Amino acid sequence: MEPSYNTQMSEFLFLGLSEEPELQPFLFGLFLSMYLVTVLGNVLIILATISDSHLHTPMYFFLSNLSLADICFVSTTVPKMLVNIQKHSKVITYAGCITQMCFFIFFAGLDIFLLTVMACDRFVAICHPLHYMIIMNPRLCGLLVLASWIMSALNALLQSLIVLRLSFCTDLEIPHFFCELNQVTHLACSDTFLNDMVMYLSSVLLGGGPLTGILYSYSKIVSSIRAISSAQGKYKAFSTCASHLSVVSLFYGTLLGVYLSSAATHNSHSSAAASVMYTVVTPMLNPFIYSLRNKDIKGALGRFLKRKTTKGSIFLGLKKCP
């Protein structure tokens, strides 16, 4: 029997994390809370780094960009899922699906590039401390961030454009809670060889390449730390990159775990549930990791909140004056 093509389709259907009606209110509350915590935590990191002159350094410049990328990353998937749960709907339009996929790939790639840039920054800070400010000058930092944005955008545009050439069957159910590239591609009835090749090549170059750079940077960092004679010096050197190492381990660990487990089990619902780790949980935990393990961030956040509280008290005091 010939497959039924639907070149004029207008929408896809999400199967989501669960089809049980009684679980929908719980999922709505859980993901709304996680989304609000993610946005609030990352906004506070951005405001703290902008408002405190002590944090106007390359490391915190990259961190503020990572926080912005995390806010956008989680905003590509969670709001649509919340709207669908609230409306008791599973639908996303074809245009909306392609748009969501494009932005998801873009901000996921941006996260990867920024984590790599931050690893290079820590490498220079620990292995070449005397030349740190000369090497990591504002011009280079700006170029590194700009290059990260441009490469992520080009990759997302390429991946999305080659999906547009596909024809889809009448079975348009996505076993996920967002338009994940691999899931959407596998719904196509037309030949997906080019899409698969571009997808795998992109994963190797834009996934494996940055990971190799991060591992190389930390191998050099570990060698430099081992060469330090005093225990206090070793602790101080390690503490400067502990937060970043924790975030890298969390992001890559959950990402690789999801794709390795999905490849082994071929269970779409399990893969969708596991994807929550790197799409929602990791962006939510990043601000906590950086604030709890970093005295500068904690101090800047404390001063920022204290200033806002003081200004609010003064404003209320003036308002009560006759």
Rank of each mutant, 00 (worst) to 15 (best):
Glu19Val: 09
Glu20Lys: 11
Gly29Thr: 06
Leu30Gly: 01
Ser18Cys: 04
Met34Pro: 02
Met34Phe: 14
Leu23Phe: 10
Tyr35Cys: 07
Glu20Leu: 09
Ser18Ala: 06
Phe26Ser: 06
Leu15Ser: 14
Leu23Gly: 01
Phe31Tyr: 08
Leu15Gly: 09
Glu22Ile: 13
Phe12Tyr: 15
Ser18Met: 02
Glu22Ser: 11
Leu36Arg: 00
Glu22Val: 14
Thr38Ile: 10
Leu17Pro: 01
Leu13Cys: 13
Leu15Pro: 02
Ser33Tyr: 07
Leu23Arg: 10
Phe14Val: 07
Thr38Asp: 10
Pro25Trp: 07
Ser18Lys: 02
Leu36Trp: 00
Leu17Ser: 00
Phe28Ala: 07
Leu27Val: 01
Leu40Val: 14
Leu32Asn: 03
Phe31Leu: 12
Leu23Gln: 14
Met34Lys: 06
Leu36Ala: 11
Glu20Tyr: 06
Gly29Gln: 09
Gln24Trp: 07
Met34Gln: 12
Phe12His: 10
Phe31Val: 01
Ser33Met: 13
Leu15Gln: 15
Gly16Thr: 04
Phe14Cys: 05
Phe26Gln: 09
Leu36Met: 10
Glu20Met: 08
Leu27Cys: 01
Phe31Asp: 00
Pro25Asn: 13
Phe28Glu: 03
Val39Met: 05
Thr38Lys: 04
Pro25His: 12
Leu36Gly: 02
Val39Glu: 04
Val39Ser: 04
Leu13Val: 15
Leu15Glu: 15
Gly41Asp: 05
Leu36Glu: 02
Ser18Tyr: 01
Glu20Ser: 09
Phe31His: 07
Thr38His: 08
Leu32Ser: 11
Phe14Leu: 12
Ser33Glu: 06
Phe26Glu: 05
Pro21Thr: 14
Leu36His: 00
